[in-house]
Amino acid sequence: MRPPVVVVGDAATDVVAVLSGEPAPGSDRPASIRVRGGGAGANVAVHLGRLGVPVTFAGCIGADAAGSALLGELTAAGVDLAVRVIPAAATGTIVSLVEPGGQRSMLADRGANLDLRPEDVPGTASGEHLHLSGYTLLDPRPRRAGLAALAAATAAGATTSLDPASTGPLTGYGVDRWLTDTAGVTLLLPNADEARLLTGCADVTDAARALAGRHPAVAVTLGADGALWCAGDLLLHRPARPAEVVDTTGAGDAFTAGLLAAWLTDPRPAPADLLDAGLALAAEAVARPGAR
């Protein structure tokens, strides 16, 4: 039996363009284009729901067909909704350009997600878990909601997890401010570049150890090289699962959900099993277009 999880973050429509070859600036390039559900917070919530974890998603959408479709997908995955509709805003949209080999560039219009307020976030009680998408903190408008969610969960004695989201906006936000705002998080889930940025360490294992000095547990994704787990004196590496990479969009969100679903079980599995659970779901995610 797993405790209920509240996921706070973005819901968005992903427009995924898988290029047939290298980008051709100033010319045309054939591509396979698909429209799918996305948003880092919603991705984690959908994966958790499909894994049978009791989960509530808190966020904002616009009063449009895109928002309605996202709510339908969340509900179909077994996710409970704490979603506010913003009549004057459009639902968020992310355009993902996927190059051969799976590398992608993302263009983000966060839309209604930026209207998230502290009162939109349901309380997290003792024995429950809060997962916060780092994007919530990286803009001044929803930042208060993210900070309020973390503070309320910590005060209630709930466990918390957080992904730093992306190095570009994280740099703009400010590393020192981020470290101060997130000091009480139980489980941190950065990728290798985010871990290096947050610590100033060139070596990712040194970065993991430095972050584990601030948080009870840290799981660092390494892309094709797998993932690291660091807690106390323990540093553990697990290799990635073999996969034919079609699109890396949402791989980190899938890893987060797979690891969380295992981490929240009682008794908690060994660290190697936690990483393997995350890596297995990430391998499934990268083998198809779209985040989920």
Results as ranks from 00 to 15, higher is better:
G78E: 06
L116D: 00
D273V: 03
A89Q: 15
P3L: 09
G146I: 03
N191V: 03
L71R: 09
A272R: 14
H215N: 11
S133D: 07
L170K: 01
D14N: 07
D233C: 08
L132S: 02
Y135G: 01
L187Q: 04
P289W: 03
A270D: 15
G172A: 12
A108F: 05
A165S: 14
P271Y: 08
P269R: 12
G213C: 14
G92K: 00
V16T: 00
A156N: 09
V16D: 03
L19P: 02
A231L: 09
I33K: 11
S166E: 09
L179D: 01
S96H: 06
T182H: 02
G9L: 08
V220G: 00
L260T: 06
G92Q: 00
R238G: 07
L107Q: 10
S133W: 00
D247M: 06
G39H: 05
L188K: 00
A145P: 04
A88E: 15
A77V: 10
A45S: 13
L234F: 10
T93Y: 03
E73T: 11
N191L: 01
A156Y: 00
E73W: 02
L130Q: 01
A254T: 13
D109E: 13
L150D: 02
A219K: 04
R292G: 02
P271K: 05
L170C: 07
T186V: 05
L130P: 00
G59H: 00
V95F: 11
D139V: 07
G250I: 12
G258L: 08
L236I: 09
D206A: 15
P140M: 06
G258H: 01
D14G: 01
L211F: 12
V6C: 13
A88T: 14
A280F: 06
T154E: 11
M1N: 13
L97A: 15
N43D: 11
P54C: 13
P140F: 07
A45Y: 01
V18M: 09
S126K: 14
G92L: 05
A251T: 12
G223N: 10
G184V: 15
L150W: 04
D28G: 12
T265D: 15
A125I: 08
V6A: 07
A208L: 09
T256H: 08
R143P: 00
I94S: 10
P289C: 04
T256S: 12
P4C: 14
L51I: 12
G26A: 14
C201L: 08
S32E: 13
A208V: 08
L211V: 08
P142D: 03
V7F: 06
G146N: 01
S27A: 15
G134H: 01
A272H: 14
L188C: 06
E22R: 15
S20P: 11
G72E: 10
L259S: 07
L48M: 11
L234K: 12
T124Y: 04
T221F: 08
R34I: 05
L170Q: 00
R50E: 13
A283D: 06
A125N: 06
G101C: 10
A153E: 03
A156F: 03
I33P: 05
P30R: 09
A125T: 10
M1V: 07
V16W: 00
P289D: 05
S126H: 14
D233Q: 15
G62H: 00
A217C: 13
L211E: 05
P87T: 06
A151C: 09
D139Y: 07
A231Q: 09
G213D: 14
L170N: 01
E284Q: 14
T171I: 11
